[in-house]
Simulated assay, not measured.
Amino acid sequence: MAVRNIRYYGDPVLRTPCDPIAEIDDSVRTLIQDLLDTTDMEGRAGVAAPQIGVGLRAFSWHIDGRTGYMINPVLEEVSGEPEEIDEGCLSVPGLWFKTKRYPYARARGIDLDGEEIVLEGEGLMAQMIQHECGHLDGTVFVDTLAKDERRAAMRQIRESDWF
């Protein structure tokens, strides 16, 4: 399996809602392993399939020494008062912006055996669940910023050396 290159903001795959995974086959097993390999690096909390160029509903995560994945996740609950937190994204490298996120999130999906799994948490786990589910819906976190903040973020993105 492999660590895959990350697609950057501006790539159309990041703006396209992902298709559900209809059948778990060898290509899906390879995708999940590639997601896990790509996430298992310092400073990476999660990677969604579109970030490695694949338009399917899956993501992997690595938080507090634990690693996992979810196929066909559905963000089923967020709660608490949204808080502004510093957030970054591998698809927007080197840039961090204040983003409103709920302090608790829960998603439901399946694993490679087709068994239902639930991923939930607070803090960084909640932030990651919301962030990665956003990617699967075709949203990059800068799209969620308030108008003036988004304008400033877009200016920084356009001035970056990777854009």
Rank of each mutant, 00 (worst) to 15 (best):
D25G: 01
D26G: 02
D26E: 10
V28D: 05
V28H: 07
V28Y: 09
R29G: 09
T30F: 06
L31F: 06
L31H: 09
L31Y: 06
I32T: 01
Q33R: 03
D34F: 08
D34C: 12
D34P: 05
D37S: 14
D37F: 13
T38F: 09
T39L: 06
T39R: 11
D40V: 00
M41A: 13
M41V: 15
G43M: 10
R44N: 04
A45P: 02
A45W: 06
A48P: 07
A49W: 14
P50F: 07
P50N: 07
P50A: 11
I52N: 10
G53Y: 01
G53T: 00
G55C: 13
G55W: 07
R57N: 03
R57M: 02
A58H: 11
A58I: 12
A58Y: 04
A58W: 10
A58S: 12
F59I: 02
F59S: 13
F59E: 11
S60A: 15
H62N: 12
I63F: 05
G65Y: 00
G65P: 02
R66W: 07
R66G: 01
G68L: 04
G68F: 02
M70W: 06
I71W: 00
I71G: 08
N72F: 06
P73V: 09
P73D: 02
V74W: 04
V74R: 08
E76I: 15
E76K: 15
E77F: 15
V78N: 08
S79W: 09
S79I: 02
G80P: 01
G80E: 00
P82Q: 15
E83I: 09
E83M: 15
D86H: 05
D86G: 12
C89V: 01
L90E: 11
S91H: 01
G94H: 03
G94R: 01
L95P: 01
F97R: 07
F97Q: 07
K98T: 07
T99A: 14
T99P: 10
T99K: 04
T99Q: 11
R101C: 08
R101D: 04
R101S: 14
R101M: 12
Y102R: 12
Y104V: 10
A105Y: 10
A105M: 01
R106C: 08
A107E: 15
R108Y: 03
R108F: 11
G109L: 10
G109E: 09
I110G: 13
D111S: 08
D111C: 07
L112M: 14
D113A: 15
G114C: 14
E115H: 14
I117F: 05
E120C: 04
E120S: 14
G121D: 03
E122F: 08
E122T: 13
G123K: 04
G123W: 11
G123M: 08
L124D: 08
M125Q: 05
Q127A: 13
M128S: 06
I129E: 01
Q130N: 03
E132G: 02
C133S: 08
G134L: 09
G134T: 09
H135M: 07
L136S: 05
L136P: 09
L136N: 05
L136K: 10
D137C: 11
G138W: 07
G138A: 03
T139P: 03
D143W: 00
D143C: 04
T144I: 08
A146W: 06
K147H: 10
K147V: 01
K147R: 12
D148I: 11
D148P: 08
E149L: 03
A152R: 15
R155S: 05
I157M: 01
I157V: 12
R158M: 06
E159Q: 13
